[in-house]
Amino acid sequence: MGNQPLLQLKNLRTSFRIQDDYFAAVDDVSLTVNENEVVAIVGESGCGKSALALSIMGLHQEGRTKLEGNVNFNGRNLLSLSTGEMNKVRGKDIGMIFQDPLTALNPLMTCGKQIEESMTYHTSFTGGEKKERALELLKSVGIPNPGRTYKQYPHELSGGMRQRVVIAVAIACNPSIVIADEPTTALDVTIQAQIMDLLKELQKKNETGIILITHDLGVVAEMADRVAVMYAGEIVELADVHTLFENPLHPYTRSLLNSIPSTTDEKERLHVIQGVVPSLKNLPRKGCRFKNRIEWMDDHEHEENPVLREVEPDHFVRCTCYKNFHFPEEK
């Protein structure tokens, strides 16, 4: 278990073309994922988590998306690779698990063939070897009857089973890093826990680095080593999981933690910031992006343009005046 950096994002900015202008959905994100480390990315809907994941994979629509900054992996900047070169990385070094298992698999291909497909591109396996590996993978993701599922089409499986197949597809070539974009949101609560356990188990066994995108802070507490909290395209707080839960500093993080349903304390539950993430076009690009959601902060207590600052070792916060911040009831 090394602390070798595996994937390094440096000032990554992803902008989408809307009409004739580009708007950044991921803005100046710097983040490192080390070997065998689980980094969680949390944040509300629309804050740019999927956009970030697709940027790393190079899966955004060309011509409508502008990517700036660096995604360093194995000594190369993935953003500078051609599609052909990127195809050698995708599926082999980086695997991706998508949110919705109902739509993530090709309805016209058997599960077995879909798992084997990446081996066709990244290994020199013969047909027999591919099948053997596919069956082994199906078994390792907890499919009860691999031989049968190998021949089945996605529609013949339940959502949970399909997500297991999606996971098998992602890890088929033993990638050193897996990006899981809300892998359980589309599933039943009971199945969610099973899938998370499976991911955790596979991560331990294969020593993969994982970028885990989720809304679910319970999952974060259970799985993650480090956590990046995103708001409106920016990382607003970054810390290891214990620090984040023990000593959250950014008002947004504190609000998120207070919104965990398991919090029984009524008073605590009130400390949730109302409102939603503004749309890309309406995002305030100057000053603190969070400002208009905490109206009870006095203007003079603010500094403009907070940067992500290390407030204690390995704990970064993008808020210059968090010390002055209190929920209304705390005053």
Binding site: L54, M57, L59, Q61, T83, G84, N87, K88, V89, R90, G91, K92, G95, M96, F98, D100, T103, A104, L105, N106, P107, Q114, E117, S118, Y121, H122, V166, V169, A170, A172
Partner: peptide
């Protein structure tokens, strides 16, 4: 071409 399973295929490294 904008369906999820096409993204999955690309994420596997399938040639264009």
């Amino acid at each position: 071409k904008i369906k999820d399973f096409v993204k999955t295929a690309r994420a596997k490294g399938v040639s264009e």
